[in-house]
Design a protein around this nucleic acid. Structure first.
Length: 500
RNA sequence: GCCCCGUUCGUCUAGUGGUUAGGACGCCAGAUUUUCAAUUUGGUAACAGGGGUUCAAUUCCCCUACGGGGUGCCA
């Protein structure tokens, strides 16, 4: 059994979007599951739209997701000469031909076809009395038929220096069947396929040719890519045949749609993975979520990377497009956050700060002791956060400077009564020893009982004074984490304002 | 227009020629509770429609509808 070789082949015309990331993930999973390799190829043959920034963004995105690839990254443009060589080989074999029809002529033909189409549609609409419809239909069928070169078989010889394009001499009869690993057998009738361009008039290869030659030369055994390439699989198979090569296995994954079911657009989710990073999602959570989008292993929802690679197979793939559900991603991410050890999570949060909006301000405050403080506060913080962004937000109070600025709701809690309680509590806390959550809680409960209050009556003002907000981890944990001096000082800050 | 692909709760999905059609997210209600979460108990909710095949179809076949992709000297 030949070793599996998959590849991820993005075109660097933008960031690595979420659909691309999923395609990369499945290629990676399949390679890992079978003990094979995943290769990376940058399809940069479109010189106008390809940019170095996009290449960097794609590689950066893959690295963030921890999807590694084997061997050197292949740049398609650099292999143009090899692609042309293959085209000439086909020419020699009689599997391709020179076509002298210009792009302008083709354009004219297309607009003719468009006109014929509209004429037919108009006639149908008007329900024009009989007869003409059949003729119009025939006319349209003729004009919209797949392109066939008029010069193909002994047409008028062109000028010796006339520019030409190399086209595949596609078969007229029969059909090509690809046995897709996901979609099952798919049949393409040859009469519906055209003589596709292999080499442009400037001698550069088209995508269709380049992909086939590269996949062959790179030894790719499994092409795993988006559903949008399904028809290309048929066309590419024709090229493999023309070259006398065996086509690899194909697996076409259903696409990801936006939450509204329409195609993923910039507006809702066709964001680069960088955007998900900026929202504070963890790579393992992303992988888990993306894997479950279109693939399932029974009822399993939370899967480690090890489990995914152990279980992955095309049998578990769905065939219909999946919608992106941010709520589920967040839920999953929350799970991963809660299950990350405290110090590890603190480290990850600090590392992620430069990528989070406004994270730099917090990053500036994090020094060595601050990192320790963050780790100690983690148990209370992490179960309240679905993303690193929320985690950073929740950690804000740890590093806030006295006197704290309270938000409106917190400020409203500090009634004169509440401030009096704060003053009394500060006095009780000051000599407390040891300073830990249990001791502070016991002391607080004694005070509450003596005063005949409910715990909430002092817990909420305490929270406001300590964190500046109405929600936070448990107050006693907050007190403990902050340390006696800082906690008492914060409480006195707010108590003092009463008399001021 | 033509070609190709698809359709199970709102969403992601499991599943089978005979099931109370299962799980997860979301939502609703209860428990817990110093806030918010977390946790936990329960609830809501689906086989697109129509024809076949069959003793029996959500499951197999056909048609329709809807959605998606392709139809480039883009990738």
């Amino acid at each position: 059994m030949k070793t599996v070789v998959t590849r991820f082949a993005p075109s660097p015309t933008g960031y690595l979007h979420i659909g691309g990331a999923r395609t990369a993930l499945f290629n990676w999973l399949y390679a890992r599951a079978t003990g094979g390799k995943m290769l990376l190829r940058i399809e940069d043959t479109d010189r106008v739209r390809s940019t170095d920034a996009a290449i960097a963004a794609i590689i950066d995105g893959l690295k963030w997701l921890e999807l590694d690839w084997d061997g050197e990254t292949v740049f398609q443009f650099a292999r143009a000469a090899r692609h042309a060589e293959a085209a000439y080989e086909m020419l020699e074999r009689g599997a391709a031909f020179r076509c002298y029809v210009t792009a302008e002529e083709l354009e004219a033909r297309r607009s003719q076809a468009e006109a014929a189409k509209q004429a037919l549609a108009a006639a149908r609409e008007a329900k024009a009395p009989g007869a003409d419809i059949a003729r119009l239909e025939a006319d349209m069928r003729e004009k919209t038929a797949p392109f066939r070169s008029p010069y193909r078989d002994g047409g008028k010889p062109p000028a010796p220096d006339a520019p030409f394009v190399v086209r595949l001499k596609a078969p007229r009869d029969g059909a090509t069947v690809i046995d897709d690993k996901v979609q099952g057998p798919v049949t393409f009738q040859h009469k519906d396929m055209d003589d596709m361009v292999l080499l442009r008039s400037d001698g550069t290869p088209t995508y269709m040719l380049a992909v086939v030659v590269d996949d062959h030369d790179m030894g790719v055994t499994h092409i795993i890519r988006g559903d949008d390439h399904l028809t290309n699989a048929g066309r590419q198979t024709l090229i493999y045949d023309a070259l006398g090569w065996t086509a690899p296995a194909f697996a076409h994954l259903p696409l990801i749609h936006g939450p509204d079911g329409a195609k993923l657009s910039k507006r809702h989710g066709a964001l680069g993975v960088e955007a998900y990073r900026a929202m504070g999602f963890l790579p393992p959570a992303m992988r888990n979520y993306l894997a479950r989008l279109g693939w399932a292993h029974g009822d399993d929802e939370i899967m480690s990377t090890e489990q995914m690679t152990a279980w992955f197979g095309f049998e578990g793939m769905g065939r219909s497009p999946a919608r992106l559900d941010l709520a589920k991603l967040e839920n999953l991410n929350g799970h991963y956050i809660r299950n990350t050890p405290d110090d590890e999570l603190a480290r990850q949060l600090i590392a992620a700060l430069p990528h989070l909006p406004g994270g730099d301000a917090l990053a500036a405050k994090i020094d060595e002791p601050a990192a320790t403080l963050l780790a100690r506060a983690m148990p209370g913080l992490k179960e309240r956060a679905k993303t690193l962004m929320e985690l950073a937000d929740g950690a804000h109070f740890l590093f806030a400077k006295r006197p704290l600025a309270l938000d409106d709701k917190a400020a409203a809690l500090l009634t004169p009564d509440a401030r009096a309680h704060l003053a009394a509590l500060a006095d009780r806390y000051a000599p407390l020893n040891p300073w830990d959550a249990a001791t502070v809680e016991a002391e607080t409960r004694r005070y509450v009982e003596a005063a005949g209050l409910k715990l909430g009556a002092v817990a909420q003002p305490l929270r406001a004074a300590l964190t500046g907000r109405t929600t936070s981890p448990g107050v006693f944990d907050v007190l403990a984490v902050l340390g006696r001096d800082e906690a008492v000082a914060r409480i006195r800050d707010q108590a003092a304002l009463a008399s001021a």
